[in-house]
Design a protein around this nucleic acid. Sequence first.
DNA 1: CCAATTAGAAGTGTCGACAGTTTTCTTTTT
DNA 2: AAAAAGAAAACTGTCGACACTTCTAATTGG
Lengths: 224, 224
Amino acid sequence: MDIQPIEAKSLVDVITKEIETAIFNGTLEPGAKVSEQGLARQLGVSRGPLREALRRLEGRKLIERTTNIGARVAKLSVDDLENLLVIREALEGMAARLAAQNMTEKERETLTALITAHGEQESVRSGTGYLQEQPDFDFHFFIIRAAKNERLEAMLCGELYDLLRAYRYKSSTLDGRARNAFAEHEAIVKALIESDADAAEAAMRLHLSTARQHIVSQMRAERI
Amino acid sequence: MDIQPIEAKSLVDVITKEIETAIFNGTLEPGAKVSEQGLARQLGVSRGPLREALRRLEGRKLIERTTNIGARVAKLSVDDLENLLVIREALEGMAARLAAQNMTEKERETLTALITAHGEQESVRSGTGYLQEQPDFDFHFFIIRAAKNERLEAMLCGELYDLLRAYRYKSSTLDGRARNAFAEHEAIVKALIESDADAAEAAMRLHLSTARQHIVSQMRAERI
DNA sequence: CCAATTAGAAGTGTCGACAGTTTTCTTTTT
DNA sequence: AAAAAGAAAACTGTCGACACTTCTAATTGG
């Protein structure tokens, strides 16, 4: 395990994390009002650091704030979700392209091992099951990291996935779509191994576009 | 002119804007330390709202902050600029694609008028001149807005352009590349008018990719 | 009984003060 | 004279208090 230098953590950092996770696990629902006094008392801190944490999250668009009125958890409509997923498509498609160009030989090997492991899962082979969430994330994150563009990585793994997580939607790979999703993953890997940038971007886009359509139609059906 | 509802502005909003412009016009250079006490005294405000403004900018990655040490204006290397321009390529390419699909008839007319006006500039026709900055921005912003994806618009017109502006680089369209840049614009418009999404995205990507290469090589040459 | 008005309560905006940490500079030791 | 140790200055982190705005609800007038 890597040894990491100890960093001094300020209260603001702790509070930020606390609010983040509250948003991601649904304790703080989208659109819910966040009372400074209430939350400060609840967390046992004063309003100062709490306000700073809220400001930071405001900059990240997870919190919306109206002067003299207060802070709310960002309201996320299905339309907005769709917009975000389209953005993800563009960015992760580009990530796949860059990965095809910049991947190291070792990374290609690791990726092959990763996809082989997935393929051996019984649930995937039978087609009745689902791709588990963590392996699916691993797959996408791995490619993003292989693109060797730190900004892009920060945007996708940080901001964008944070926002998307706030929606708490069921990933469409968790929904009987596993066999198709796996085939799509295989196509992406094939293009990456062959260093075919165009094909890699196209395959990733197709994969995410399909997932997007499933997610959106499913959510629209749920929330009528 | 549109009538807009008056919004209460808090000190934090004012301070944020103040720091933003200081970064964009170079008063606060990238990497420069920002002293809370100093800036607070200079602006005639207390440290509280100033800290909140810094936190917000931290969330937007314009300010970097280390606990107990202080805040710095984000350091922007040429590599990082290149990374950002690649991201812009992906996003604005997608914007062009969406614009081709979602543009209204009226928008198509406006766009045609816009490009015709550019073409009649003597400086462009002779090829010796340059595309002025504002019209160039107008062109790009117009397409982004026509994509009808608010998130994408916010990202490109807001966050990303903010960050890019912090670099204060000379847009490559300002540098004798006007004739080529104009031809590239024309290709984009043609695809948009014909509702050819693939062509629109490809043309926009090509345009931005060429610009990126010019900008980066120019900056590397300047900063040896 | 309903609508408008107006105190009261609750909440956000801003500030100054104090505690703890980092930096700087002086002093001491080798 | 250079390096290490220690003291002082400067800065950031956190807090509680007060001013002002918004929301609530009781009161008054139609």
